[in-house]
Design a protein around this nucleic acid. Structure first.
Lengths: 199, 199
DNA sequence: GTCTATATGAGGATAGAC
DNA sequence: GTCTATCCTCATATAGAC
């Protein structure tokens, strides 16, 4: 057995296999990706994967939990910072686009599979993270309204959903190295969100 | 054989089965839903489904193509109308939220499966519809800018993606009969989109 | 760390009786 | 229009050799 019961040691081969799996899970979907697909892409046979991982489920589990841990570390930094409310909100948006840039596969998997995977005990942390993310956004929006920077007439819960959804769904079309950098995209998005599209 | 080669006749039993399948495809995903799941939900055995449909694929095909036909009929009406640019844009947004309200399952299936299904010849119309939808939004945005109602400094392609994504992704959380009607949601969304969230 | 070989089960689909 | 019975393929996972 290669993996410890608490946290698997990071061998580079293991990480390599996780990257390959993440790419396939992200582009074809978790269910649509077979262990043979993963093994083929890695140049080994499917049975050999089980030297590294217990199951296909373990692979996606490790991919998602690792990513979430990093992402929420960033959110925590912003919340703890002393920038003004509007700047904090902008920062949170930018962190998200940065995550899309740096961890496309992980974000895509989370977007596409979290609802379904979340129904299993093993992935209950996904629901908790969702809740945590909601608290981050509601806090930022609340501070923004309290400071007078944001409109007080809007339904905060709805605003939260719109921001969350629009930011993350960009993973569907954003391509690193494409025409627009993630900074460009974030700039435009922040501009629309804050000021609207009318003159 | 029950179905004609061109367009299957609408027997009510057939429609009932399609509704049941759509509900399952929308909530569990196409690949995750087995023909046995569908049959169970309908109170029959899986083999009996094949009296009505050629394959599981045929079912999702019929669900999606029927929905798309209706949706694009609505878009065409708006484009052909003589409302001012801003009103047309609003109308298009509202039609989308209405579609989410009336055809939740179909919208969800399209959102979750179109990318993947679109890679097969049989579903090539999905890509065409996507292109068509892009033209609708770009036309509306172009008219808006030309008329002076919309900001000329924004990247129209990006604005299009943000509108498209934010509108449709609402299907993930919108529930008919919930706290917010689809009219409420559309109102708030239009307000944010047009005027932004700042004071 | 990878391969060979294989167990085991699930899922899509079919043929023909009722 | 549904059931019985069943085929066939594909997918996850395992055991042990190399």
């Amino acid at each position: 057995m290669t993996q410890s019961s608490v946290r698997p040691p990071s061998s580079s081969r293991r990480d390599e296999l996780l990257q390959i799996a993440a790419e396939l899970f992200a582009t074809q979907g978790f269910k649509n990706t077979t262990v043979r697909d993963i093994a083929d892409a890695a140049g080994i046979l499917s049975g050999s994967l089980y030297h590294h991982f217990d199951s296909k489920e373990s692979m996606v589990d490790e991919i998602l939990s690792t990513f979430q841990e990093e992402l929420f570390g960033r959110y925590a930094e912003i919340l703890a910072g002393d920038a003004d409310p509007r700047a904090k909100l902008e920062a949170a948006v930018r962190v998200s686009f940065e995550a899309i840039h740096q961890h496309r596969n992980e974000v895509a998997i989370f977007q596409n599979e979290a609802d379904h995977l979340g129904t299993f005990e093993r992935f209950s942390y996904l629901a908790e993270r969702n809740q945590q993310s909601r608290e981050v956004w509601l806090t930022l929006l609340g501070e923004g309204i309290a400071s007078g920077a944001l409109r007080p007439d809007l339904d905060v819960e709805l605003v939260h959903r719109f921001i969350r959804d629009t930011v993350w769904v960009a993973v569907r079309w954003y391509r690193p190295g494409g025409k627009r950098s993630h900074h460009d995209v974030a700039d435009q998005y922040v501009s629309i969100l804050l000021d609207g599209i009318t003159t």
